[in-house]
Structures are given as structure tokens and as C-alpha cells.
Design a protein around this nucleic acid. Structure first.
Lengths: 251, 251
DNA sequence: GCTTGACCCTGACGCGACGTCAGGCTGTGC
DNA sequence: GCACAGCCTGACGTCGCGTCAGGGTCAAGC
């Protein structure tokens, strides 16, 4: 793909892509004979990461260091993005609530204190963010050592995580074939196991979130295909089990 | 208050306040003999509005025109801020969901299409935002006329809205004194009336949101005082009624 | 084959919203 | 009375692009 197409797809301007190329944040992997930039699928992938981090308020230079860190695997980026997005969700919800409180107060003829009104602005990312930067980039030998170990851990973990996922899926398939109903306690327990596994290995997956994923399993054909390859009807079975489990927990 | 105190309170730097003064966005209402800036309560109020709009991505110059528009009452600002914040909440939630989908896909060995991944960025504020600017600033005579009428409406509405609020509150107080239980259908109907009134006159107030407000009535002493001035025990009564009504509607 | 118009390139300057000194005045606790 | 935190006004720097300017490229139609 050339610049114009990429820009249209990603919702940025051509100038922005030029800029990212210039500062070395995202250089297209190839050029035509005439010097036209050619973007590969991997380039698009990186652009996606860049835009996410940018949206989250990271300066571009820091985005570059984050993405060029060889010891950071993709899952780590996703996990960080997820955490930051949830923080932002919470903050925005707090601001919405503050505006609602303000309107209500106004109607009743009550006035809020300045301190109260500014509360919602005060302290957000910078602190936690600084803390994370310190944690990640404190450049001591100890850091570099632990970083290497962390990278090693991550690889081991990856194998373990995949195996865990396989295990639960296999037991779900077995249950389906044994005629276990997807809304039975047994099925729900398996769904709960899957949920806790996600929470341990990826991000904090609430019953509500898990129910959303459950819907995905039947609505998105690629997820459906993944389950159906293992056993016919498994996608629907897992979807139902996950949602029943979420409902059981009050979601 | 002088610059340093205001800056600390609002979570901005002194330089930012200097900047706002220089560009005429927020000039303190007074100065000491030595030239020190003195900020009044009204100045703090304006700063609060500025920071909210800034957070929402408005350029400072536009913030100035919005806040200096004599035909825009405070409620209109709050309503707009509420709408924009909810939009942002929705967008952030969508991004969170997208990241979750991505992780799930990755674990299953599925890859999403570029188009899909960029979907969540594509189109946000600019369009609606432009539309609103057009709507508000299309400078025709018709606009100016309707603007005047809208401003007039707003004042009439304000009287009507206050009267409506008074009416519901009075009937709630009467019900309390007549011994109506706050979780009775009659009380819940009154709560529902209050909720619909907020939705009509201020912003879309879902049962969940209303339940939140209900909690406020007993948690925040000023809201409590507002109700208690009318009748002893009314704050708790209304709070319970509102939350019971929300629960009745599945919130 | 030639033109036309959309698309691409590389500078280079501009801008918004501050950050960051520099150099100097002010207010207060000991 | 003096140290030191806090305030003032320039003035220049920075980041993430927007916006020309001046010129090459490519597919389509004549």
C-alpha cells in the first residue's frame, strides 16, 4: 500500500506519515523505483500500535522506545494499552458523574466548592506513568539483568499460557461430546476457569467482559472457526456457557 | 487567590495561567499593587470550564468564543460537556473492547484485518463537532434570529423547569408526610417522574445514572440539606425511592 | 504519443500550547 | 535585615504536525 491508502485507512493525513518516517518512528519497509513509500502489513501493524499509544497521550519519542524495546512482546503492549484505556474509562466516567452532580446541584440551588470541582482533573496519568517509566527504564545493571529474566519468563509463560488454554478448550470439547448442557453448572465451571485464566494471564476479565467475549465466539466467524475446528457446535456451546456463567455471577 | 494557589488547585502550571491571561482566555479579575494576579471565585469557575473544554480537545480560541457567547447559559455548557463526555466514554469503551478482542484473537491464533483494527480510530468528534459549529455559527440572519429566540426560550424554560422540579419535590414531601413507604409503587412512580424530568430538561438520565444521583442525596450533606429543609427525612426517602425505582427497571 | 489530473516526493516555514530559562521585584519568617 | 520562596515580564525552544512551494510519477483518455 502507498501513503494515501494507508492514511485513508488509518484516519491520519499523509503529512503525518511523512512525519513518522522522518523521525524514524515508522519508516515504510520499502520504496518503489520512483521513491514512493510502500507499506507492508507489518508496517500497518506498527502504525496501529503507534496510534494507540499516541491516543493515550504518549510523546512520539517514547512510543518509539516502547515499540523498539526488544524485550517487550506484543502481549505486553496489549496489556499496557488495556490498563491505560481502563484508567481513562474510569476517569471519563468520573468526569461524567461530576458534570451530572454539577447540574443537579445547580437545579437545587446548591453550589459546589472549587476544590470539589477540580478534583476530577488533578492527578491522572503522569504519576503512574512516571512510575512505570522509572520501573522500566531505571538504567542500572540490576534492571538489565531482571529485564533479561523477565523476557525469559515471558517466553516460558507464553508456552504455559497456550497449554493452559488448550487444556480448558479440550475439556470443553469433551464435555460437549459427552452431552453436557452448556448452561449446566459443569459447563459454567469450565467457563469460569477460562475466565480466571484470562484474568491471570492477560488482563482483569470481569464477568461482563467475559460475556462480551462469549458473544464474539458466535458473531465473529474467525472465532467460530477456531472452535469449530476442534468440535462441531463448540463455538455455540462455549458462547452459551460463558454467558450463563456471567449471568450466574450477576452480570 | 494568587497564581500559585490556583495552579496547585486546578492541577495546571503557573505558566499555563500566564498563557491564558496573555491570550485573553482567562484574565484574573484583579491585581495587587505589586502586580500580582488575584483570582476570584468567578475566575475559578471560568477556569473550570476552560479545562473541561480543553480536555475535550477544543482549541483555546474556540473555548474563548464558546465561553464568551452571551446567548449561552451555564446549563447549555454543562449539557454540551455531558454529551461530549458520553461520546468519549463510548469511544473509549469501544477501544477497550477492541484491545480485548485483539488479545483473544492472538491467543487463538487468529489475526484481525487491518481495516478492523483501525475501525475504532476512524471517525470521531470532527464530524459531529463541525456539524455543531455549523449549527451554532452558520452566520445567516435566520441563525441570528433563531438564536435570539432560542435564548428567549431558554429563559422561559428555566422558569418552567424550576417549577416542575418544585412540583415533584412538593408531592414527594406530601407522600412522605402521608406515610407512603419509599419503596412503594407510588413512591417509585414519583421517582420515575423526577427521572424523566431530568431527561427532558437536562440530559439523558438512565435509571443507573439516577440511582447514582439517589446515593448522592444522602452522601453529600448539601444535597441532604436541600431536601431536609423541605421536610425531615425527605433526603433518605427520595434516595430510597429513586434507587428502588432504578432497581425496578432492572438497573 | 501526448496531455490531463490525481498522487507522490522533498524542503521549509508556521502554529498552538505551552516549557524553560533569564533577570528582576515582592512578601514573610527568623 | 536578610534569606528564600513566590511573583513578574520578556524571549526563545519544543512537539506534532498543517500548509504551501516546486517538481517528479502514473493511469486514463484522446
Amino acid at each position: 500500500m502507498n501513503v494515501g491508502e494507508v492514511a485513508a485507512l488509518a484516519g491520519v493525513t499523509v503529512r503525518t506519515l511523512h512525519h513518522y518516517d522522518r523521525i524514524g518512528l515508522l519508516s515504510p519497509s520499502g520504496r518503489t523505483a520512483a521513491g514512493y513509500r510502500r507499506y507492508s502489513a507489518a508496517d500497518l501493524d506498527r502504525l496501529h500500535q503507534v496510534l494507540l499509544y499516541r491516543e493515550l497521550g504518549f510523546p512520539l519519542e517514547e512510543v518509539a522506545t516502547l515499540l523498539d524495546d526488544p524485550s517487550a512482546d506484543p502481549v505486553e503492549h496489549l496489556r499496557r494499552q488495556h490498563r491505560l484505556l481502563r484508567d481513562r474509562l474510569d476517569r471519563t466516567a468520573a468526569m461524567v458523574a461530576a458534570v451530572e452532580k454539577e447540574m443537579e446541584a445547580r437545579q437545587m440551588g446548591i453550589s459546589l466548592t472549587p476544590r470539589e470541582r477540580f478534583e476530577v482533573f488533578g492527578d491522572h496519568d503522569p504519576e503512574q506513568y512516571e512510575a512505570e517509566v522509572q520501573e522500566r527504564w531505571g538504567d542500572t545493571d540490576a534492571y538489565r539483568e531482571s529485564s533479561r529474566r523477565a523476557a525469559a519468563y515471558t517466553k516460558d509463560d507464553w508456552v504455559r499460557v497456550t497449554a493452559e488454554g488448550e487444556d480448558v478448550e479440550a475439556r470443553m470439547a469433551a464435555a460437549l461430546q459427552a452431552g453436557v448442557a452448556p448452561d449446566s453448572p459443569e459447563a459454567m465451571d469450565l467457563a469460569e476457569e477460562a475466565r480466571q485464566q484470562i484474568s491471570r494471564n492477560f488482563y482483569d476479565c470481569s464477568p461482563e467482559v467475559h460475556a462480551g467475549l462469549g458473544r464474539l465466539y458466535v458473531e465473529d466467524e474467525r472465532f467460530t472457526a477456531h472452535y469449530e475446528r476442534r468440535a462441531a457446535g463448540l463455538a455455540q456451546w462455549v458462547s452459551t456457557a460463558v454467558q450463563a456463567n456471567a449471568a450466574r455471577q450477576g452480570a
